[in-house]
Design a protein around this nucleic acid. Structure first.
Lengths: 207, 207
DNA sequence: TCCGTAAAATGAATTGACTTAAGTTTGTAG
DNA sequence: CTACAAACTTAAGTCAATTCATTTTACGGA
């Protein structure tokens, strides 16, 4: 049987995560205490630590949910990409950005990234890194797909291209969330400029 | 006159920073307490906060010193860059990487970046962002210099190119410091691959 | 049904960053 | 030389994340 204990455990984990999501979104990461999350989930503070390694772990778990969602949705863009190669890549990367802000504020993203960075070997740090890896690979997939169509030079390594493009979007996103006042339009403009540059390349060997 | 107070203040700031540098390097960021730093500098814990906003601020101040050093040294590479354009860019970026690990361990870099990310509006967060900006601009300068020599397509915006190249090296560096076991050779290999790709571009408009 | 074991929950204790109120020292004006 | 104000220092707090010893609960076997 599923076992009462198993079900209770899964349920409690869900409850705690839901409580954290609610309070993080309402009050921000810094202004939400573990006590408050525990109270919202109707457990003791110590219990939270039976399910999550740290406060940061709670946040990363939320981000990971979102990340999975983005990746799944990204597949549909790859399945049927726009005619133009630059447009296709830009569409996918813009999609990542737009999606990222639906559920999480800039403050939450800052703290999620900061936690992932300072605790890279913790369970959640690894999870965050794995997520980045998957998204970069997805961009690489798109590049491979466009190569198959003959729209991108077949000589380039699609994985490397995916890495570079994802690094570009990720770096710009970091700057974006670091500046509370920066509008998303500015981020997109910079992204477009840089993606175009990656397509055209710096080389002077034209011809 | 310089004023006793001024001199004492500057001296104390130096003492505290030196104490922090010593202990951070010896014990790591997480295992060094403000108390210990204060004791090493022979002041009270509270005094540390008259000179630095937070523990993270102390670390960023150390990083900033290094950053200035790197930037200054980078100038000499720009002043007399290698013949080949790819080599020139690669040399500058590799120089950044090599220099970064002379004074600071991976753990310190992780924490410095994490702090800068989670507190972007604090004095030290802004300082860190400014440093990144300056280095990216320096890469842009090199690109402009290579354009002047006719080794890089004059049509590309040198600032954008600098941004992209710096984002690449910075992203790879983040991955590098996140993995305690990752050797620097691997980082450099990835960097070389990606820089080459940025030079060649993804486009299929050859001819 | 009753019992022993191990998982899970609990909240009090610990820890360490940061704050603050009170006491000192330095510079200055009379 | 003296008194006052501003700037510094300090040590005793506050606060919140995390840990831990203890209690409670689920589960399987007698």
């Amino acid at each position: 049987m599923a076992g009462l204990r198993e079900r209770q455990k899964a349920g409690r984990r869900r409850d705690i995560l839901a409580a954290a999501a609610k309070l993080f979104r309402r009050d921000g990461f810094a202004d939400t205490s573990i006590e408050a999350i525990a109270a919202e989930a109707e457990v003791a503070a110590g219990t939270v630590y039976n399910y999550f390694q740290s406060k940061g772990d709670l946040l990363i778990s939320l981000v990971a949910l979102d990340g999975e969602e983005v990746r799944a949705a990204g597949k549909s863009i790859i399945a049927n990409p726009p005619k133009d190669a630059v447009t296709a890549v830009h569409r996918l990367l813009t999609f990542y950005i737009d999606h990222s802000l639906i559920h999480l504020s800039k403050e939450l993203w800052r703290n999620a990234m900061a936690n992932a960075l300072s605790q890279p070997s913790s369970e959640f740090g690894l999870a965050y890194a794995a997520l980045d890896r998957k998204l970069a690979d997805q961009v690489g997939e798109l590049v491979a797909c466009l190569q198959a169509r003959g729209q991108i030079d077949g000589g380039v390594d699609s994985k490397t291209a995916g890495d570079v493009l994802f690094e570009v979007v990720n770096s710009l996103f970091q700057v974006f969330v670091a500046r509370e006042e920066m509008p998303i339009a500015l981020l997109k403009k910079a992204l477009a400029r840089q993606v175009r540059l990656v397509f055209s390349g710096l080389g002077n060997s034209e011809g």
